[in-house]
Design a protein around this nucleic acid. Structure first.
Lengths: 163, 163
DNA sequence: AGCAATTACGTAAGTACTTACATAAATAGT
DNA sequence: ACTATTTATGTAAGTACTTACGTAATTGCT
């Protein structure tokens, strides 16, 4: 039997990472087969720019819940690839506003069938579940946002010591 | 609102990775505070050796569902750290059998209170969920093991084209 | 027994994030 | 208006995996 499953509550991070990697590898293969020259790691940032551009680096980082250096790396690749354009903000010259380029606009309808397939396939699998993965992720994120894991563990350790 | 949550079925890999990172960072902080000189990435391999050593590199990789180079990196660090010993198998000289060292034995009871806390805290959070994260992970892993995501998407794309 | 195929392990390099640290521009308090 | 603080971005390096490729030992076939 799968040892990570046996570890259960003791191996949350590794198990989440493993499933993330499984998905990532699959989607990488599909993009490659499509010949569209698009990468998995671009997707969240790219779609955010599609739907809500022009948008700044920090705004992207906050909306995605990732660090700004991570966003910068992706954005630089998207600009390099010609899908996104970057211009300095007039109101705040520290800010870089990212928008979709014409090539980026043209890319969306090519990617859309793949994205639709991802959604359909995942939706199908999710309906097969007695415990819905997306909902459980949402609930766990909310619990950890309300009180981070570190604080919970610290409190638990103090409580155990004082008995 | 969190954009990854909005993307839902379209950002499974990124969202799982993000939650994995959140957990990972928390556990890293707790190990650091404990002063035990132990790393998150060692945990699954270390516990497997504790419970089922001596065990070979490939057996570890298979039981954990990760690649063997990943295991080798962790094992080398555990040997370097003095928690694990490595010896060539007598029956099959290609194999390296990993066992717990005396220092490794001594480490277990020091780590145990932390591990107990991780389990207790996670178990508490899981009971608060209407959709149990561990169960949803288990179910999703099983679905993907039965038919990988790539195959599901390929089938869906062919089906859509032929309508 | 001899040889092709498989298995076990190792190493190098790539990937997608992070942390840590830096600078420049805007903002706030006086 | 001036200065301290904050905010936005950038860069370098670290981390925890992976893929790709290599060698040595074992196994299976005849």
């Amino acid at each position: 039997m799968d040892f990570m499953a046996e570890l259960a509550e003791l191996a949350m991070a590794s198990r989440l990472r493993r499933l993330s990697d499984t998905y990532w590898q699959a989607v990488t293969a599909i993009y490659r087969e499509s010949g569209l020259d698009f990468e998995v790691k671009w997707a969240t940032v790219f779609i955010l720019i599609v739907r809500q551009g022009p948008i700044s680096v920090m705004d992207i980082a906050e909306r995605l819940g990732v660090t700004h250096p991570g966003v910068i790396q992706v954005v630089n690749e998207l600009v390099q690839r010609g899908l996104v354009t970057s211009e300095k903000s007039g109101k705040d010259s520290r800010k870089r506003l990212l928008s979709l380029s014409p090539d980026g606009e043209a890319m969306v309808p090519k990617l859309q069938p793949l994205w639709d397939a991802f959604v359909a396939v995942n939706r199908q699998m999710l309906t097969n579940q007695t415990h819905n993965l997306l909902q459980s992720l949402q609930e766990m994120e909310e619990q950890l946002a309300e009180k981070p894991f570190v604080n919970r563990v610290r409190d638990h350790l103090n409580q155990s010591n004082h008995e």
